[in-house]
Design a protein around this nucleic acid. Structure first.
Lengths: 234, 234
DNA sequence: AAAATAGTTGAATTTGAATTCAAAATCAAT
DNA sequence: ATTGATTTTGAATTCAAATTCAACTATTTT
């Protein structure tokens, strides 16, 4: 077989409903194993065992662990990714609500499937294409703001790429904290015992402050209402 | 051998100067391979080849790849980690300079050895103890600020752990951006072509804004001076 | 109900890399 | 120069896990 064809034959689809069910069973099992063990510890035997089928069956449907994982995690990453859906209840011009809505979605993902979120990072680190796909998504989530920045702050007269850098730096506010809280389960941080809503609120408030140099309106705040008083003294 | 002893026998030290040199040679080679290939692609053969010795010699000095890597990366992580050293030129009370000094150190690390920085994350993801050590360091870099927060903003009357969460969220400002810029080498971001100083300045300005709800003094700024005008309109 | 097609099994094989180890080389001390 | 300890070699071995495949079962078609 030419290398050309070999690349295409990644994965074979099922040819019947029964087969389709088996294939889905393996994907579901993979998700369980990924959540529990992470990508690097996962073995083909783990997946087939979890699915309750023989090892050989794996190869009937997937080329190798990586292509299965790629498929499972791509599905996962795409699932909660539609900006229109995310912002459906947000009134035009309400920046706080808009940012909050985005943050809440991602905090929920971390809270619900920390192991899988970790696997996204693991696989992105292994696979160039997957990394590119994730980062492209991430970038798309940010570009609306990047493009708005010059209109939003005309006085600032951003230099080329400056708005981009600023937005990326803001986006980082959440990532690190969520990893530490949900994935690493830092003792010190977990002691705070935040709900996902409180968590999202905190991130949003900090984001808002760095972006606008203002606090969000107090009436929109609960958990972080007191942060309004966090202003440089003298 | 008892499991107790087995655990201690991780790694054998060299018993002569010559041996010590060979051992260091392997560590040095490992650093090269880590920077180039990353932890997961590294093989014992790669290290010995890079060091120009036979495969077997590896086991004379190290138990396995993981313990070698642990040693190499622990050295690396500890090297640039002394807060006193970092803040040596900072005048008391100059918050901007203080934060900038910290940021500059880490931006430099990323710029100089992006591959190794990536490996820190890879190994932390594999090894609980190493992860704990890194996170402990990270935490120590932040705790001075956490502890100062209630005095700095008495009006805010932080709830338990709130200051901690806030500081962690601030710390995230840099991490994500540095990964995207130096490790993933994002095309769009690299187009900005920032110097390490500009990079550190950007992070510091954003950090400062979110923390104090104020811009740093304009005279301290270069690359981000125009960001002073980034304030919510209306 | 026979034939054809698709799905499934699990033992046997292959693979790629870690690990061992007997023998050779080097070195420091006497 | 000889001895004994240490370092170094690299071919042989082991090992865990991936991969193959011939035989078997289930389902659908004719």
């Amino acid at each position: 077989m030419s290398p050309e064809l070999a690349r295409k034959a990644k994965t074979s689809r099922a040819r019947s409903a029964r087969g389709e069910r088996a294939r889905e069973g393996l994907k579901q099992a993979a998700l369980v194993v990924l959540e529990r063990d992470g990508y690097h510890k996962m073995r083909i035997a783990d997946v087939t065992q979890e699915a309750g089928v023989a090892q050989g069956l794996f190869y009937h449907y997937f080329k190798d662990l990586k292509s299965l994982t790629l498929e499972v995690l791509t599905d996962f990453a795409m699932a909660s990714n539609d900006p229109l859906q995310i912002e459906k209840d947000v009134s035009r011009g309400d920046w706080y609500a808009r940012i909050y809505a985005h943050n809440l979605v991602i905090v929920r993902s971390y809270a619900k499937r920390p192991g899988v979120m970790r696997c996204l990072l693991q696989l992105a680190d292994e696979d160039e294409a997957f990394s590119g796909m994730l980062r492209e998504n991430y970038r798309n989530q940010l570009m609306w703001l990047v493009e708005l920045m010059p209109k939003l702050f005309p006085k600032a007269r951003f230099r080329k790429h400056q708005a981009l850098m600023v937005v990326y730096s803001l986006a980082g506010i959440g990532e690190g904290l969520m990893r530490e809280y949900f994935i690493n389960e830092s003792k010190t941080l977990r002691a705070a015992r935040l709900t996902v809503e409180q968590f999202a609120e905190l991130l949003t408030t900090m984001f808002y402050r760095a972006l606008f140099l203002q606090n969000p309106e107090e009436k929109q705040l609960e958990y972080t209402r007191n942060l309004t008083a966090m202003v440089k003294p003298n």
